[in-house]
Design a protein around this nucleic acid. Sequence first.
DNA 1: CCAAGTTTCCTGCTGGGAAT
DNA 2: ATTCCCAGCAGGAAACTTGG
Length: 314
Amino acid sequence: MVIITERDVNIFKILSSGASDLADIRKMLRDVYKTDVSPNALQKRLSLLKKDDYIRSRVYAKKNEGLRVKKEGYEQEESEKAMRSNVPFALYALTFLSIAVLVERGYDHNWIRACLPGPPFIKHDEMVREVVRAIKKEAARVGYSFGLVDELNLKRMASKYKSRENLPDLLVRLTLDIGSEQIVKRYNLEIDNNTISPLYMVDKVLKSKRRTIIICNDSKSRMESFLRAFKSAVKDEAKRNLIKRKQRKGNVQPLQQHEDIPLAHKVVFTYIKEFCSRGFLQTNFISIDGEPVYIVPPEINKKIIIRGRGVYDT
DNA sequence: CCAAGTTTCCTGCTGGGAAT
DNA sequence: ATTCCCAGCAGGAAACTTGG
């Protein structure tokens, strides 16, 4: 029977952004919570927490990034080690018990992701985790509130409502304090790991009612192929609208309650590196025409009341 | 000094590449 | 095909630390 300590709660908070491995948890404990712990001791603690169902783990086979060319002499041994692929490693995640501990202590349940990715999605899940951390970091600095729904919860929601909608990686609600009033913004976040075709992404954005922020991996060519795909989709949309307008001519149109956002204003892009260091407010996003845009205009940005404690809590 | 909790040490297990 | 080896996880025992 483990007794949950402050450090355990910190571990839970670290895991609440997404599944992490031993090295990552240790790094976060050191950097954020200023507690040093040896890998051995941490693993010990994790296995104890696991025994009492506070966390769960899953062992994966880690693939090395490509094979290295064999080298001469003393480097060869190192190189051979590096070539060794499929080394086992474990990811740890929260359970309903640890989530209960966090919520009991006032931790916002909207901040919790508690999923272990399937083997093909390790890299993607890690990217999502880093994005969530970046959002939490900015939220701590600026003091905005946000809620996120991770894909697992979305799937649960979708099956509940029998909706066949394509689900985003994250659904974010930003509430910004501007003087006496509040601005609420909702976005789909898509974190891209170069795996799906740009056309599929276009389709996803078109089908959704919300605006989408696409966070690319750091490859420029990937960004360019997205921009190409979306540009041609904007042209198609213009054609369709022209036809629609012709058909409407003469008809009495009932006032449309919910006019769809035109595609050109529905999506912005950025690189994951940029987003993780600058967040929603400072990132210079790229529009479909390749123009720089801020999702919060500078004149509003200036008015945002900074009420964060400046403490980076995970 | 004791008890509880923490860390270190050690051994076993596993999957897959490399050597034979 | 078989054996060996390796890295990393799991978990038990013992040593160590700390608060009362």
